[in-house]
């Protein structure tokens, strides 16, 4: 299958052209964020304050990388379970977030928010963290260093492989894939 090359930030047109099952290679800047960072971002929004990163057209990668050993840009860096960010994600999508990378199913509320705002959810292969780390060519902490592995990192990625699991039209690759092979 041909892979679609995407460069961040994603335009509305780009994100709404994607469909479930499409394999993509991501290039450019993406940000990391897990539960603890999401909690803080949403607290800032609640207080009407500015976020430490501009989310317009951006992608958040749900990952808490392992520390970089000497000579490396980053440690191993595979996706974490996206469902833990479900209660926060719609707020960030409202701010212009166009993509999320993780693994595992999203809630209906997140799916609806993606439909409304034209965002997509990509899966990276859970557990293939040593392999994925090779696609990360720069990494720096840009917010919440006290959170350690949960700090927000600005990553530069080159041909980072992911697959569209939820598109902006309510499609769900996990459900479709399961239906295709279920023998019950």
């Amino acid at each position: 299958m041909t892979r679609v090359h995407l460069t961040t930030p994603l335009s509305q047109e780009t994100s709404t052209n994607l469909r479930i099952g499409q394999q993509v290679l991501l290039n450019g800047v993406i940000y990391t964020g897990r539960d603890a960072a999401h909690k803080r971002l949403v607290e800032l929004l609640d207080q009407g304050k500015e976020l430490p990163i501009d989310l317009k057209g951006q992608i958040i990668y749900y990952v808490g990388p392992s520390p970089a050993s000497p000579g490396r840009v980053i440690g191993s860096a595979g996706p974490t379970t996206a469902g833990r960010m479900d209660s926060y994600a719609p707020r960030l999508i409202e701010q212009g977030l166009k993509g999320m990378i993780g693994k595992g199913a999203r809630s209906q509320a997140v799916v609806e928010s993606m439909k409304k705002h034209g965002a997509v959810y990509f899966a990276a292969i859970g557990g293939a963290a040593a392999l994925i780390s090779r696609c990360i060519i720069e990494s720096e902490v840009v917010a919440y260093p006290d959170l350690g592995p949960e700090a927000i990192h600005r990553l530069v990625v080159k041909d980072f492989p992911a697959i569209v699991v939820n598109d902006a039209f309510g499609g769900d690759l996990y459900q479709e894939g399961r239906k295709l092979y279920c023998q019950e």
Partner: peptide, 9 residues
């Protein structure tokens, strides 16, 4: 069940 590797079927 059909879940498959990485849950993609």
């Amino acid at each position: 069940l059909g879940i498959g590797p990485a849950g993609l079927g």
